[in-house]
């Protein structure tokens, strides 16, 4: 599965995109798995109220099952316009 990070999450984790193997069922589970990797991930995901996520480019909540999705993205609240 492809994982993308944007804005300060990308900076804190240190990579814009990575391909990972995961058995996580939901996005929440995946966040827990990633947080346990290194302190950088843990810091990036320490306050989930400041993080939004998208599954296959649709904005979703953290309890969404990963299912057959190919792409998950993490980013701060959007500031377009």
């Amino acid at each position: 599965m492809r994982v993308l990070y944007f804005a300060w999450l990308r900076e804190r984790i240190g990579v814009p995109v990575e391909d990972i193997e995961t058995s996580a069922e939901t996005i929440e589970d995946l966040v827990l798995e990633l947080s346990n990797r290194t302190p950088r991930y843990k810091a990036a995901f320490s306050d989930l109220s400041a993080v939004r996520c998208a599954l296959d480019q649709n904005l979703v909540s953290f309890d969404t099952p990963l299912g057959d999705a190919r792409e998950v993205a993490f980013f701060p609240p959007m500031t377009g316009g």
Binding site: A54, F75, M78, G80
Partner: peptide, 8 residues
């Protein structure tokens, strides 16, 4: 666009 378009 302000809060639902993925720009930062």
């Amino acid at each position: 666009l302000k809060s639902r378009a993925p720009f930062w």
